[in-house]
Design a protein around this nucleic acid. Structure first.
Lengths: 121, 121, 121, 121
DNA sequence: GTGGTCTAGACCACC
DNA sequence: GTGGTCTAGACCACA
């Protein structure tokens, strides 16, 4: 697992987001066991408390659950994960649309812009 | 000018972004005079210092300049504003692309998704 | 750290300049940790906000970066610091040259003048 | 007379400095009559009050004097002007020396630097 | 009246 | 404890 941490956002949020992305994208399969907090923390070079906070948050969101003694697991609720993936995509796209509209682009221009930007490189 | 402030981001950043959007979208015309710091602060119901900070940032970005005793003005450099508009759009689109890729969508899926989401509503 | 504040310039600019000088001259080593905003402010006998403003500027210039909870550090980019040192010197010299030219001295006179003034004392 | 005004310094200071330079450099000859405040203000595109302030200041410094009804004149005290020219040069050079020393250059390095910078271009 | 600076003091999230 | 943000209120030079 590769981690990218910068100083502009709370670290635990960054951890949270990156784990979340890996779960919904399937890079971390549903039902699989996560490494220990300590191991993850070491890997990401953060304080274990910080990693702990990220995981607790994921638990709150239902993406992850812990079995008392055997560790933490990714939820095995495929539907939930799939929905989340679609929702995240949909939300991002709508936010983009909003922003571009505020910038004064109309719908047809937006489509043009996106095509142009997606194609290049 | 209408202001929307929430608690998820520093206020001065939100002010900054909203003014910026209005400038690049043309809602505030290039070369025009802005209201005084105090007036804007009152309108947005924030402390004058906070508004000042937002405007200073805009000044750093070259979107705005101040004449010490006669007020603050939007730059009259049309090209700069236009470029900034395009850049902002382009950056947003690329960020979306990145996020969707991290979510595991490939380029053709991304295009499908966007079409689907833009058309609805 | 010794501070010299007068009333001819904004305080935060003076703080900024003095810290900058100490960094580029190596008096404050690259990569080292700065005292906390509060400590520095107390030392310089200014309001913490004023010191904060000075440090934020330095951060904008890339000479310093902050880790939100562990403090502020001098950049460890030696090249950047060295370049800045050279640039600052070069700029000062060119400004001097300009001024002396405006005073009506030609290049050879300028060299004479400088020699004369540098040697004495 | 060509004027360069920016927004980073008090305008009257900029006017003052530019007139002063032109007097000590001889561009405006000693004993000569200055244009009227109104004419100068128009030329420099500033408020007459501002130009007035600059000239008053020059008067205080003894570089300029006014004859009740016939206008303002540059002092005809050649020695004073010459001294001022030399002093200004000398002060600038000493300031440069100080700055470079604070940047950590020793005297021989300073000479090298200056040679290098003066020769180029 | 304008932008700009400064202080004092408070609060917050983060680690 | 750290940096960061925000408010309230004051003062200044400039035009």
């Amino acid at each position: 697992m590769d981690w990218e941490i910068d100083n502009n956002k709370p670290i635990y949020i960054q951890l949270l987001e990156q784990i979340k992305l890996k779960i919904v994208s399937g890079e971390i399969p549903i039902g699989s066991k996560l490494d220990s907090v300590r191991a993850l923390a070491q890997e990401a070079e953060v304080n274990p408390n910080t990693m702990q906070k990220a995981l607790s948050e994921l638990e709150r969101e239902g993406l992850v659950f812990s079995k008392r003694t055997s560790g933490r697991f990714v939820t095995d609720d495929k539907e939930r994960v799939d929905n989340m993936r679609e929702d995240m995509a949909s939300i991002q796209i709508k936010l983009l649309k909003q922003t571009l509209q505020k910038l004064g682009y109309d719908t047809s221009e937006i489509i043009e812009l996106i095509k142009h930007n997606l194609e290049e490189e």
